[in-house]
Design a protein around this nucleic acid. Structure first.
Lengths: 239, 239
DNA sequence: CTCGGTTTGTTCTCGCGTTCACAAACTCCT
DNA sequence: AGGAGTTTGTGAACGCGAGAACAAACCGAG
């Protein structure tokens, strides 16, 4: 993992240390470029792209500058060219194999998500620990026993796993994934995963997002008057 | 900071400016406290809670200090007391009514998510523009026409809406939500929403999360050599 | 009461990310 | 060819968040 000094300049243009905040925005730019391309737009300015991506144009330009100089001053960016460059930088010029574990409501929704294949990913297996689900076919893919994980991960060189199980099972699934060589995990289960440092985990948590909204919503509605909810909010001094 | 004179108040000035980064972590702490409470833990130190929440203990203490002084030096935090204080600060001591628009695979999964009610939210309506879905009952709730949004939003004083439609419909849905007085939107559609400044939008985007993972994954596997993607020219060293 | 051990709350410092502002570079028109 | 008008790429200032470190506060033992 120590590629600190080995950041060789083998590839001509690729920038070496892209800030994390920029990495998180590149997919947004990529999607905006795809949309522009489908609309027949050949070139766009940083201002146009920034509006389409919902960000500040100065931030956009700085983000793109980490990848290299792919624009033309006085003109803008070639949509298809920039789109390819960002896709290459992210690493989605061809598909990554992905396994989904936990084929409940959410897992089925994910399996049916059409954006997978069009955006650089391919679902190679659906796994579930519950034998009652093993007969099902979801999104054209057989649901297999969780025990098949190791074989499938090996056969397809799977590096990315998605966890859509209940919270109690998530840590076990993660452990097995790590043991099978998976080094990137997208976790939909509402729990904190414990994994080795070299494994990347991103979490998507519905209730956390809603609670963040609730916090701000409370501030808004309390601006004029406390309430809308109820009045039983006095400082209940327990203990 | 001993602002005891102020912290005794109820809502008005209890904690004015909580950093956004802290707000985003409060729900994580809340969940960890609920788990600890269910396990029968009465008190915990910042270190224990930090481990359970997956963060640094110094960060945890600083976050909690924005809410007030709810701990006891030399002892730690009373689990149930702190849990209540965080829930109150977030605003989930009672349920927020929520509408879900777009009852496809994802919308159904969200409607069935049991974490809603237990974490401060109550689904009051499921709406879909497709008449073919209007006969369905999902999670015990009738799927209604999208046109019912205004009536339902008014009757239930709905402030939070969830968009689970295809991307092309999302902006229209958002516009209608805003027109109905909804001021917080959780958007699962893969598109950028354009809303007035006073409306909060949070987006959850599967393919963006996966692409971020793919970027780091590419860096890991390309540790030594760059260009395993489009470059078969260079001997692919899969170390 | 005093003292030692423990844990919180807070201050300080540092690094990252955002934004402004502008020179460099390109096109188009005359 | 040259100048006017655009737009990119980037240096610099600024604000926020992360983490270390420490004084204050609390408990229990003697």
């Amino acid at each position: 993992m120590e590629r600190a000094a080995v950041t060789a300049r083998t590839s001509p243009e690729s920038a070496r240390d892209i800030p994390e905040a920029t990495v998180a925005r590149l997919p947004v730019y990529l999607r905006a470029l795809v949309t522009l391309s489908e609309q027949g737009t050949a070139t766009c300015s940083s201002e146009e792209l920034a509006v389409a991506a919902g960000v500040n144009s100065a931030k956009l330009r700085k983000d793109l500058s980490y990848l290299g100089s792919y624009g033309t001053r006085g003109v803008g960016y070639d949509v298809d060219y920039l789109r390819y460059q960002i896709a290459r930088e992210i690493g989605v010029t061809q598909d990554w194999p992905v396994v989904i574990v936990g084929i409940g409501n959410l897992g089925q929704a994910l399996a049916n998500y059409s954006g997978f294949r069009s955006r650089g990913f391919r679902v190679v297996a659906l796994l579930d620990a519950d034998p009652a689900r093993h007969d099902a076919v979801v999104a054209g893919i057989d649901v297999r026993p969780f025990a098949d994980l190791e074989r499938i991960a090996r056969e397809h060189s799977v590096a990315i796993g998605v966890i859509a199980t209940p919270a109690v099972a998530a840590q076990d699934v993660a452990d097995r994934m790590v043991a099978c060589g998976i080094t990137s995990i997208l976790n939909f289960a509402p729990t904190v995963l414990n994994v080795p440092a070299e494994v990347d985990v991103r979490k998507v948590d519905l209730s956390i997002e809603l609670q963040i909204l609730a916090y701000h919503e409370q501030r808004k509605t309390n601006g004029a008057q406390n309430g809308a909810q109820d009045g039983a909010r006095e400082g209940a001094q327990t203990a």
